[in-house]
Simulated scan of single mutants.
Amino acid sequence: MHSARDNASRPAIAPLLLAIGLSASSFLTGTSALALSELQKTPGQVEQSAPGQGGDKPAPSPTSPGVPMPDPLVNSQAGQSNDKTPGAEDSSKPVEVIYDISKVPEPVRKMREQIVEAAASGDLERLRPLLGTGATQTQVTVGEPTDDPISALKDLSGDPEGDEILAILLDVISTGFVHVGQGTPDEMFVWPYFAEKDLKALTPPERVELLRIVTAGDLSDMQEFGGYNFYRLGITPDGKWKYFTAGD
């Protein structure tokens, strides 16, 4: 049998056990948190030391040497071109459309000027001196050469006088043009530039310019066909009127 004095001298067991339990819980919690932080480290990740611990070296920045940045997008696309045009000398380069007639050799400029004057006169016969004869005669039909190019042009016109073909000639030679075949026997200045252009890649202004020569239905047919197949005109660098024909 115990007295009240004995009970007072004994330490309270319950509070003591509670304190021990809390200490153990704190220790286990800290260990678990440390283990979790260790598990979450990405393989190869460099552990960053706090200032003053393990040296004063700063953590590597994203732009530090040895960590290459992605190449600029423009560099990865250098040399690539989507404007690959049939008929161009180098299909990797866009066609250069020329509007300034002063950039062509003088014989080419002079021949173009004479063609424009003759066509604007409304008299088909005024083209005859420009068409040449024999081996140098201008080609006006596809296939075998004709004995009389003026007669052939009149037959191609929708009217008996040949006014329509003169109007087409003026429209064609009033567009921009291209210089093709440089340095070869086939070097030529060609009107219209659509003859060397991908018709599916035309800009809105180019479409409008082409529709001054052909109808919307013609353009749709050409896009399905794969290229311009209406009238085109070629003049050699030495001023010879080489051809005025329709077709591909």
Rank of each mutant, 00 (worst) to 15 (best):
L16Y: 15
L17F: 03
L22F: 13
L22W: 00
L28N: 09
S37G: 10
E38W: 09
L39P: 01
Q40Y: 09
E47G: 11
Q48P: 09
Q53D: 07
Q53N: 07
D71T: 08
D71A: 14
P72M: 06
P72K: 02
G79C: 06
D83S: 15
P86T: 10
D90N: 09
S92N: 12
V95E: 05
Y99T: 13
I101E: 13
S102K: 11
S102V: 05
K103Q: 12
V104M: 15
P105R: 04
P107M: 08
A118D: 00
A119R: 03
A120M: 08
S121C: 03
L127H: 01
L127T: 00
G134M: 08
T136H: 13
Q137R: 15
G143E: 04
E144M: 10
D147I: 11
S157I: 01
G158Q: 13
D159H: 04
G162N: 00
L170P: 02
L170Y: 00
V172R: 03
V172K: 02
T184R: 02
T184G: 14
V190L: 14
A195C: 10
K200W: 05
P204I: 04
P204N: 07
R212D: 09
D218W: 02
Q223R: 14
F225G: 05
G227F: 00
G227Y: 03
N229Q: 09
R232S: 10
F244C: 07
F244G: 03
T245Q: 09
D248H: 13
